[in-house]
Nucleic acid binder design. Structure first.
Length: 256
DNA sequence: TAGGCCATCTGGTCCT
DNA sequence: AGGACCAGATGGCCTA
């Protein structure tokens, strides 16, 4: 892959978030270096990709011309840029499945905030799973259940609050123990069951997930003892203190 | 204007 | 040998 190929294939900004970077891309791989891109058709430079160690050696030994070295440097930069873009795409994928308002007018989580939130979200879900296992065991011992109800995919997953910005509510969601999403299965891309409550009521719902009613009809069962994996039917709260989702890092509040 | 966040460049190190 | 990974440096953009 030469430098020009790198340019053509790399700048697919999947996230649309690299507005600053795209300018820099244009500056670094664009006009000021355009004379070099594809400028050495006869040079076998692609066969001489060097790590910086070897590159330094060659510089000292004057193996390359100045143009060749610059072209080589561009290729290395392109690879690094692509690597970082892939990393950012992965982070965006992580943001999409996080219990956080991610509307178009909501500022996205920073990288560090995304990672911390993900970590604590996993911890919280792990704790939830343990609680669930205990409860299932208890219920099964006291009242054997012939079969569990069939739960539709995505049932119980609450949509993030519809806010035009990162509201105080959203900030509170982050800084408290609650999760805004509880899924029946592992697939995050399934049907979203949006709460029908008012904005204010949504706040209470989101902050009190253990009594959050799932809007799915199958979760609206008369008997609370009937198992419903959305937590909606559980008349209890877990006894663990779920960690603050952002604990361990002094996250600056997200502002509109 | 200071500070936070980010993208990019760059050189070093490690891995295959 | 070539590429991936990493961290430091730098500069731009945005917000309080």
């Amino acid at each position: 892959m030469n430098a020009s190929e790198c340019r053509s294939s790399e700048f697919i900004d999947v996230t649309g978030l690299n507005d600053v970077g795209s300018d820099s891309d244009e500056a670094s791989c664009g006009s000021d270096t355009s004379s070099l891109l594809g400028g050495h058709p006869g040079s076998n430079i692609s066969a001489h990709r060097k790590s910086s160690k070897h590159l330094k050696q060659d510089i000292e030994e004057k193996t390359y011309t100045e143009d060749e070295l610059q072209d080589l440097r561009l290729k290395i930069n392109c690879r690094e840029r692509k690597r970082m873009h892939d990393l950012n795409s992965a982070l965006d994928g992580l943001r999409e499945v996080m219990p956080y308002a991610n509307g178009p007018s909501v500022r996205k989580l920073s990288k560090i905030a995304t990672l911390l939130l993900a970590k604590n979200y996993i911890l919280m879900l792990t704790n939830s799973l343990e609680e669930m296992k205990k409860l299932v065991g208890d219920v099964y011992r006291t009242r054997p259940i012939p079969s569990l109800p069939t739960i539709p995919a995505g049932c119980g997953r609450l949509a993030p609050p519809v806010t035009p910005m990162v509201s105080p509510l959203a900030r509170e969601i982050i800084s408290t123990t609650s999760a805004t999403e509880v899924t029946h299965n592992a697939s995050p891309s399934t049907v979203v069951h949006a709460p029908t409550a008012s904005r204010e009521a949504q706040g209470h719902l989101l902050l009190d997930r253990w009594r959050t009613p799932c809007t799915c009809p199958q979760c609206h069962m008369a008997d609370p003892a009937t198992l419903c994996l959305s937590y909606g039917g559980f008349p209890f709260k877990p006894n663990y203190a779920a960690p603050t989702l952002m604990s361990g890092h002094s996250l600056k509040p997200q502002h509109p």
